[in-house]
Design a protein around this nucleic acid. Structure first.
Lengths: 141, 141
DNA sequence: TAATCGGCGATCATTAAGGTCGGATATATA
DNA sequence: TATATATCCGACCTTAATGATCGCCGATTA
């Protein structure tokens, strides 16, 4: 209920890590080991982030990822959409006919307004607000 | 991802219905039929609402439920908590040791702040803001 | 050219949500 | 007082989303 996914968590940790690596590349294995994240799953998340232009990939040995954007211009809303698709508090989409309650449902549009406000809020939270804070010494190397 | 559950939807519809019934009781079967909601599931939701004091149950034939509180003093946050338990955007709770990322995780507490803001928002949305609006003629009988 | 990286699709496992079933208790009314 | 109609309650099954895994490919650099 209203939970963020693990993928989002992993993405945030990875970006957090990269922001401390600065210019130098960070590879998937490294991040996975440090944070104890399943390698393959993290790999997918990072590939997604790369595809969406949040990070840049460097192929081959000594390869990995570097941040393409400053964490203070990436919003949590953007990140969520990049990884999970559009944010929907309500189940049914606009032209949805599959919902059995559609006929008599009067709560949908008011809930949409609430949804919109939450999305709006998430679009105004930047990633550096979530990352920066404190970082374990070992990571700052 | 960040979705409300069907139970919440059903609860809102039921409360909406009851608020138009006013003093007269509304029974589960009736509501289920009108909105096309699985009877047993709706029954559970209503029992929960009764237990939490949002509605009052009347047993036996001609029984059913009536609102115990005005929709304008019930908040969406309260309703969600009554049915689904505490709202958690983040996975792990305070003393949680099961999360594998705990050791190096620095994003948890910032996310908690975000969670708190969302909960705060939901605690300021009253049910009548979601219900009232328009109601199909047939229901206003 | 071998070892190390990312890229990608398919697939399995786990869990939470959605829904069902059976039987209990209460109570109006015939 | 019998019966039909309600709420009550717990156990259970089903489905769908998330989380995780596997295998193979292409790119790149030492």
């Amino acid at each position: 209920m209203l939970k963020l996914t693990k993928k989002i968590d992993y993405a945030l940790m990875a970006i957090n890590f990269m922001s401390f690596k600065g210019e130098s590349v960070a590879n998937t294995r490294n991040i996975a080991e440090i944070y104890n994240i399943p390698l393959e799953l993290l790999a997918k998340v990072l590939q997604r982030l790369a595809k969406k232009g949040f990070i840049v990939s460097q192929n081959g040995p000594k390869g990995g990822y570097t941040l393409a954007k400053d964490p203070n211009v990436i919003t949590l809303g953007e990140l969520i959409r990049a990884i999970e698709g559009p944010i929907q508090i309500v189940h049914c989409t606009e032209g949805d006919t599959s919902c059995l309650q559609t006929a008599r449902c009067t709560i949908r549009s008011p809930l949409r307004k609430i949804e919109h406000k939450i999305v709006d809020f998430l679009d105004n939270v930047t990633i550096d607000q979530i990352c920066s804070e404190e970082v374990p010494e070992e990571l700052a190397v």
